[in-house]
Design a binder for these strands. Structure first.
Lengths: 202, 202
DNA sequence: GTCTATAGGGTGATAGAC
DNA sequence: GTCTATCACCCTATAGAC
């Protein structure tokens, strides 16, 4: 039983080290691009020669896959929980906006890679990622639809509205690093104010 | 004088062929990525061996530079003309929205490369591009500021509003190819309706 | 677990024949 | 203008010693 506890509860050193390497890779991929970053560079940053590096990573593409999952999986879980809350569509969209911006701001490297390099995923990895992205967009789409059904929103085309909302948020990764001091809560409020009420004086 | 006219007015065959190769490269870079596309592939698509190809292109990076300029230069010129019109800030922003979406929809490959691969530009090329992007964003920023000065808009933070506006538009390149039949005029109207008046029922 | 050596295959760019 | 041959260098991944 002591042995069982050690393998199931104690941290797996190999998995821990692999996690560190994933973060190192995310930083390199974000600053130089996936294709332009060599396995050698990742090894140098992790202080590991190539042979030892491959003991942890398996392949370069599996690092890319894990970077994607680290952003997408918590985002999907949180957005799903928020959508299930008993609150107005506007209130729930505001919360989704905030968790999305938190990922973009606090896991900036991973999000950059996620939004820039998903085409470097191949085969099943690519298809799995595509499905998760559709799932997230559907959560947002359904919130807009719920708002229209409740008479809370007036929307000409639901899909365009969803894509405008997601696009406005996602694009944040392009500039947020150059504006330090911006926080998810403030930005979420400003985006939501614009999206729900517009900027025209009334 | 006849000879002078021929060199200054008649089309330069080399420049024409180079232009065709730039378009071929844009299509390849957009579908596979800049780093993942080889000079050999560009040559195959253009039906030219490497030696002949280099006679036209100079270098791979100069192709990337020209793809950027083909999007940015007309956009800057049109946006500058629109900003100088005597019209409300909302009307002028609506026109800027439309020319931006026209570039995104009708020069989709070039825009994809432009928004995805600008980090592969080096040295002066990169700096020149950065300046042009700032120039475009300043045109949009000044339109928002003019709207506030006229009492037409109420905006908490000008720069956030500008970035939200630009981001909502730019992100369009990610999905517009999967929705055929979308035109710049319709999309521009929908984006502007959301941005100026919001989606909440009043 | 970590290393070095190497396999097997790319890359962008240029020289020089025609 | 277009070609082939080649330069110098890079890549991901694996084998096998320690």
């Amino acid at each position: 039983m002591g042995e069982f506890q050690r393998t199931s509860v104690a941290p797996d050193q190999r998995a821990v080290r692999r996690g560190e390497i994933v973060d190192i890779a995310a930083a390199l991929f974000a600053s130089k691009g996936y294709d332009a970053t060599g396995i050698r560079e990742i090894g140098e940053s992790a202080r590991l020669a190539r042979g030892a590096l491959y003991y942890y990573i398996g392949s370069k593409e599996s690092l890319l896959e894990e970077i994607h999952n680290r952003v997408m999986d918590p985002l999907l879980a949180e957005a799903g929980d928020i959508a299930a809350l008993e609150a107005s569509a506007a209130a729930r969209l505001r919360l989704v906006s905030e968790v999305l911006l938190q990922q973009i701001i606090h896991h900036h490297d991973h999000v950059w890679v996620f939004l820039h390099e998903y085409r470097s995923l191949t085969g099943d990895r690519r298809e799995t990622f595509r499905r998760k992205r559709v799932e997230f967009q559907n959560i947002v789409l359904n919130l807009f639809a719920a708002g229209v059904a409740d008479g809370e929103f007036v929307i000409e085309d639901l899909e365009t509205a969803m894509l405008a909302f997601v696009g406005m948020h996602n694009y944040t990764y392009q500039w947020v690093r150059r504006k330090p001091g911006v926080d998810a809560e403030t930005l979420s409020r400003r985006y939501s104010d614009i999206f729900f009420d517009g900027i025209r004086r009334r």
